[in-house]
Nucleic acid binder design. Structure first.
Length: 861
RNA sequence: GCCGAUGUGGCGAAAUGGUAAACGCAGCGGACUUAAAAUCCGCCGGGUGGCGACACCCUUGCCGGUUCGAGUCCGGCCAUCGGCACCA
C-alpha cells in the first residue's frame, strides 16, 4: 500500500513564517513604521535626500492579485527599504486605478453599484498586499474614484480647458487670448480641451467610443468587439501641440532605449514639404504632403482620401456614380477592413486633373482608401517609380511610372524608395536626394507653391467616453455652447444611477439621470465621462500630498518629492511594457501642461523607468484562467510564506525578462530561508525552536568575514542596479559559508540579516529579535527596517595569496598561487617556470608575455 | 514588410574583453533514520584515453573578422518573442 506524499502544508514547516509574518506586519502597522513625513511635518528631516519610488498602480479587479503584481512591487519595496537604510526620505506609495469598465459591466449584469464592487475589490487587494509585507505609507493611499481625488482630476481638466499653446509651444492661460480680444469661436478653437465632431471609433457592443490606441486590429482592446467609424461630437485633448517636446524631452530620461524608440515611433515625426497643385479648369488647389519633394517631377497622378472635402467639387459628370459608390463602400468599411484587405489596392478616377507645378503636366486625380484623411492633408502626389504603394496602385490601374531617382549600382529603379541621384527632374538633375529635397523645397517656397513641413502620426487624444463609471466633465452646455463650471462646484459627483445599461444609442448612460443633467433653467450638463487614463495621468503627484483638500498637491511637497535637479521627478518608476506608449505618453503630456502653467517644477514626470518582464505559467504559456496555469499568490504565501514569495519573484531572473514560474524554484528559496533560520535556531526534543548552541559572540574567521563583506558590497551594488537575482545568489553563498563554519559568529549574522532584510523583511525582523533577546549587547534596538545599511570593510576583501591562471597561447594550462602584491615580473617569472606551461611551450621561446595583475599570465609562443 | 529584444548545461540562470556554466532547480551517491520525509556532506555540459586520481579535445544559435585572449567587440545569416503596420 502506498500513501500519497504529504503536501507541504501538512509537512512540518522549516520555520514558523505563518506565525511571525502576520506578527511583524501588525507590529509595523501599529508603530506606523513606514510613515513618510512631508516637508513642514514635525518629524520631517530636511537633511536627508529624497527618493521617490513608484509602481504602476493596479486596477483592483475582482480576481485579486496575480503573481505578476508582486514582481514589480517587491522590486520597488526592496529599493525603498534599501534607500531608507542608506539615509533617504523614501516615498513608496500605493493606490488604485479604480474607474473602468469591468465594475460597470458587473453592475449591468448584477445591479451592484460599481462603487460597492470597487470598494470590495480594493479591500481584498489591500489585504493581499499587506500579507506580502510591503513598506507602504497607507496614509498616502490614492483612489481615482474617490471624490477627494477626482475633484483634482476635474480641476486639471479645467486647466486644460482654460489653456492654449502659444507660438513658443508652451501652454498658457486662455485669458491671454481673451485679453487679445479673440472671439468666442476663435478661443474655443485653440483650447487644449476642445470639442470635435470628427469620425470616431464607435463600439456598439461596449456602447462607447474608443481612442485610436484602444482599438486593436479594428476591434476593441477590451472585449474584442467590432468597432465602426462614425462622426460624433467628442472632447479632444490637443496632445499634438506637444508632439515635438514629447520626442525631444525623452533625451534627458533614464528610460530603456527601446521604450523611447516606441514612443518616438508612435509620435511618428516626419519631415517633408507641402506642395500646392492647381486643379485643371477649376479655381481650386489641392495641397499634398510628401517626404520626397525631390521626386515631384515623377508625380504621374494624385490621390485624395475618399473623405476629402474637394472630391464633390472636382468629380466629373461621368464619374459621379462610380465615385459615390466607392465613397459609400469605404465609409462602411471599418479600419480593420481598410487595412487588413490592403493586399489589393482599390480606387476610382474622379475625372479631374491636377497640374504638376514643376512641369505644368496634367495628371489624373483619383480617390483611394490607401490615402487616409487623418494624416497630412488627406491628399498625396503619387510617384509610382519610387513609392511602394503608389507603384502597386499604378501597376493595377495602368498609370505611368516615370523614373526620377537613379539608385546606386545594382538596384532596379522601379519601386526604388531609398536615396539616390535625381534624374529626369530638370533643375534637380544630378543632385543627391538630400540636396534635391532642399533645393526643390526652397524653389517651392520662393514661388509660393509650397513649404517645408513637419507632420506627426500622433493624433489628438479622444477624451470622452459614453460610460457611467468615470469622472464627469465639469462642463455645461447652453444654446449649443459649452462652458466650464466654477472650481467651487468641484468635485462634480456622478449621479446615483440604478440602471447602468448603455442606452443602445450614442447617448451616454448619464442621460438617464434627468435631475442631474439639468444644470439650470437653460443649461444642461455634459453627459460624457473621462476615460480611465485620466486618473492615472497624475496620481504620482497626488501621492506627494494625498490628503490635501486645498490644492492637488502642495507646492512644498511637490517641490521636495518631484525635485532633485533632474528633468523627471519620480526617481524610479516600475511597471509593465503594456503602458509603454499610452499611459506614459498621456502622463507626460499632462505633466508638461502643468509645468508650463507653473503648477509643477519639472518638465517630466518619471526620471528612471524600468519595465518588469511578464511572468509566464509553469508551462511557459501566458497565465490565463482558460489555460488553468494561473498561480495565486495567496496559495504561495500560505505554503511557503511571504518572504519566500518575495525572494522567489526576485530570484527567477533579471527583472526586465519574461520568465516562467516554477513551484520547485519557490521551494528552493524557501529552503534557503530555512537555512538562514537554522543559523540561529534549532529544534529540541519537544520540537520547539531554541537558540543554536553554535551561535557565539566571537569574531568571524577570516574566510567567513570575507564572504560577509563581499555580500554587503555586492548586495548594495546589485540593488542599485536592480539586479536582485545575483544579490540573492550572493546571500546564498554567504549563508552556506555560515552554515559550514564551526561556530556561528553572532555579530556577523546580525549584519547579514540587515542585508537580507529588504528582501525578506519578516524573517530578518524575527531573527534579529531572537538575537537581541539572547545577545542584548549585539543587536540594535528597534526594527531592522530602521537600521543603517552596513558598510563593508575593503580590507576584509583582500586576500594575502591569490591564484593566477597561466595560459599558453590563450589556453588555460596551469594555476599558480602568488602573493597579493607580487610584482609583475615576479609573476611572469613564476608563470614561465611552471612545469605545465613549459610542457606546452615545447621548448620555444615566448614571443610575448601578457601579465594581467591579479588575474592571469598569457604566454605567446 | 519595418523597428526592437532575446538566443549559454536537462531547467531558471551567472560571467568590468581575462579560469564559461557562480547561485538555484531537477538528477545521482553518501551520512542520519527501523524506514521515509526533512536535514547535512559530495558529484553533476559533451567526447576520448585510463582501474584510478587525472589528462587531453570540443562546447555560449550559425558563418566570418578584430585581438595575446571573444559568451562579451565588429560584419553577415538563422530562430523565437514583442511592438508598429497603406502615416505618403
Amino acid at each position: 500500500m502506498s500513501t500519497p506524499p504529504p503536501s507541504t502544508s501538512e509537512r512540518r514547516k522549516q520555520f514558523p513564517f505563518d506565525a511571525f509574518e502576520p506578527k511583524w506586519q501588525a507590529a509595523w502597522e501599529k508603530a506606523n513604521a513606514f510613515h513618510t513625513p512631508n516637508p513642514g511635518d514635525a518629524d520631517f528631516d530636511a537633511s536627508k535626500p529624497k527618493y521617490f519610488v513608484l509602481d504602476m498602480f493596479p486596477y483592483p479587479s475582482g480576481q485579486g492579485l496575480h503573481v505578476g503584481h508582486p514582481e514589480g512591487y517587491t522590486a520597488t519595496d526592496i529599493i525603498g527599504r534599501y534607500k531608507r537604510m542608506t539615509g533617504h526620505n523614501v516615498l513608496h506609495p500605493m493606490g488604485w486605478d479604480a474607474f473602468g469598465l469591468p465594475a460597470e459591466q458587473y453592475a449591468i449584469k448584477t445591479g451592484t453599484h460599481p462603487r460597492a464592487t470597487t470598494e470590495a475589490n480594493i479591500a481584498n487587494f489591500k489585504k493581499q498586499l499587506n500579507s506580502l509585507g510591503f513598506a507602504y505609507d497607507w496614509a498616502r493611499e490614492v483612489n481615482t474614484t474617490d471624490p477627494g481625488y477626482f475633484k483634482w482630476t476635474q480641476w486639471i481638466f479645467l486647466q486644460l480647458y482654460n489653456s492654449y499653446v502659444n507660438d513658443e509651444g508652451k501652454a498658457r492661460p486662455i485669458a491671454e487670448l481673451e485679453a487679445q480680444g479673440l472671439s468666442h469661436e476663435e478661443i474655443d478653437a485653440r483650447r487644449l480641451a476642445y470639442v470635435s465632431s470628427a469620425p470616431v471609433n464607435w463600439c456598439p457592443e461596449l456602447g462607447t467610443v474608443l481612442a485610436n490606441e484602444e482599438v486593436v486590429d479594428g476591434k476593441s482592446e477590451v472585449g474584442g468587439f467590432p468597432v465602426e467609424r462614425r462622426p460624433m461630437r467628442q472632447w479632444m485633448l490637443r496632445i499634438t501641440a506637444f508632439a515635438q517636446r514629447l520626442i525631444d524631452e525623452l533625451d534627458g530620461l533614464d528610460w530603456p532605449e527601446s521604450i523611447k524608440l516606441l514612443q518616438r515611433n508612435w509620435i511618428g515625426r516626419s519631415e517633408g514639404a507641402e506642395v500646392k497643385f492647381k486643379v485643371a479648369g477649376l479655381e481650386e488647389t489641392i495641397t499634398v504632403f510628401t517626404t520626397r519633394p525631390d521626386t515631384l517631377f515623377g508625380a504621374t497622378y494624385m490621390v485624395l482620401a475618399p473623405e476629402h472635402r474637394l472630391v464633390d467639387e472636382l468629380v466629373s459628370e461621368e464619374q459621379i456614380a462610380a465615385v459615390e459608390l466607392y465613397r459609400e463602400k469605404t465609409a462602411r468599411k471599418s479600419d480593420l477592413e481598410r487595412t487588413e484587405l490592403a493586399k489589393e489596392k482599390s480606387g476610382v478616377f474622379t475625372g479631374a486633373y491636377a497640374i504638376n507645378p514643376v512641369n505644368e503636366e496634367k495628371i489624373p486625380i483619383w480617390i483611394a482608401d490607401y490615402v487616409l484623411m487623418g494624416y497630412g492633408t488627406g491628399a498625396i502626389m503619387a510617384v509610382p517609380a519610387h513609392d511602394e504603394r503608389d507603384f502597386e496602385f499604378a501597376k493595377m490601374f495602368h498609370l505611368p511610372i516615370n523614373q526620377v531617382v537613379q539608385p546606386p549600382e545594382g538596384h532596379d529603379w522601379q519601386g526604388y524608395t531609398d536615396a539616390g541621384t535625381a534624374v529626369n527632374s530638370g533643375f534637380l538633375d544630378g543632385l543627391p536626394t538630400p540636396e534635391a529635397k532642399a533645393k526643390i523645397t526652397a524653389w517651392l517656397e520662393e514661388k509660393g507653391l509650397g513649404k517645408g513641413t513637419i507632420n506627426f502620426k500622433l493624433r489628438d487624444w479622444l477624451f470622452s467616453r459614453q460610460r457611467y463609471w468615470g469622472e464627469p466633465f465639469p462642463i455645461v452646455w447652453e444654446d449649443g455652447q459649452h462652458r466650464c463650471i466654477p472650481e467651487s462646484e468641484l468635485p462634480l459627483l456622478p449621479p446615483d444611477l440604478a440602471d447602468f445599461k448603455p442606452t443602445g444609442t450614442p447617448e451616454p448612460p448619464l442621460s438617464k439621470a434627468t435631475d442631474w443633467v439639468r444644470y439650470s433653467e437653460t443649461a444642461t450638463r455634459e453627459l460624457n465621462t473621462m476615460p480611465q487614463w485620466a486618473g492615472s495621468c497624475w496620481y504620482y503627484l497626488r501621492y506627494c500630498d494625498a490628503q490635501n483638500s486645498e490644492r492637488f498637491v502642495s507646492e512644498a511637497a511637490e517641490r521636495y518629492w518631484m525635485g532633485g535637479g533632474k528633468p523627471g521627478g519620480v526617481d524610479l518608476y516600475v511597471g509593465g511594457t503594456e503602458h509603454a506608449v499610452l499611459h506614459l505618453l498621456y502622463a507626460r503630456f499632462w505633466h508638461k501642461v502643468l509645468f508650463d502653467l507653473g503648477f509643477v517644477s519639472t518638465p517630466e514626470p518619471f526620471q528612471r523607468l524600468v519595465n518588469q518582464g511578464l511572468i509566464m505559467g509553469e508551462d511557459g504559456q501566458k497565465m490565463s484562467k482558460s489555460r488553468g496555469n494561473v498561480v495565486n499568490p495567496d496559495d504561495v504565501v500560505s505554503e511557503y510564506g511571504a518572504d519566500s514569495l518575495r525572494l522567489y519573484e526576485m530570484f527567477m531572473g533579471p527583472l526586465e525578462q519574461v520568465k516562467p514560474w516554477s513551484m520547485k524554484g519557490v521551494e528552493g528559496v524557501y529552503r534557503f530561508l530555512g537555512r538562514v533560520w537554522r543559523l540561529v535556531l534549532e529544534t529540541n526534543q519537544e520540537g520547539e525552536w531554541t537558540l543554536s548552541p553554535q551561535l557565539k559572540d566571537v569574531p568571524a574567521e577570516k574566510k567567513v568575514n570575507k564572504v560577509l563583506h563581499e555580500t554587503i558590497k555586492k548586495c548594495g551594488e546589485d540593488i542599485e542596479k536592480l539586479s536582485f537575482n545575483t544579490a540573492i545568489s550572493q546571500m546564498m553563498i554567504c549563508t552556506n559559508a555560515f552554515t559550514q563554519a564551526e561556530v556561528r559568529p553572532v555579530r556577523a549574522i546580525a549584519t547579514f540579516l540587515t542585508v537580507l532584510s529588504p528582501f525578506a523583511p519578516h524573517i530578518a525582523e524575527e531573527l534579529q529579535a531572537v538575537i537581541r533577546q539572547h545577545f542584548p549587547e549585539v543587536a540594535q534596538p528597534g526594527f531592522i527596517a530602521d537600521q543603517t545599511w552596513p558598510s563593508y570593510d575593503p580590507a576584509a576583501l583582500i586576500e594575502d595569496e591569490i591564484e593566477i591562471v597561466v595560459q599558453v597561447n590563450g589556453k588555460l594550462r596551469d594555476r599558480i598561487t602568488v602573493a597579493r602584491d607580487a610584482p609583475k615580473d615576479e609573476v611572469e617569472k613564476l608563470a614561465l617556470a611552471s612545469e605545465r606551461a613549459q610542457e606546452f611551450m615545447e621548448g620555444k621561446t615566448p614571443k610575448k608575455v601578457i601579465v594581467v595583475p591579479g588575474k592571469l599570465v598569457n604566454i605567446v609562443v
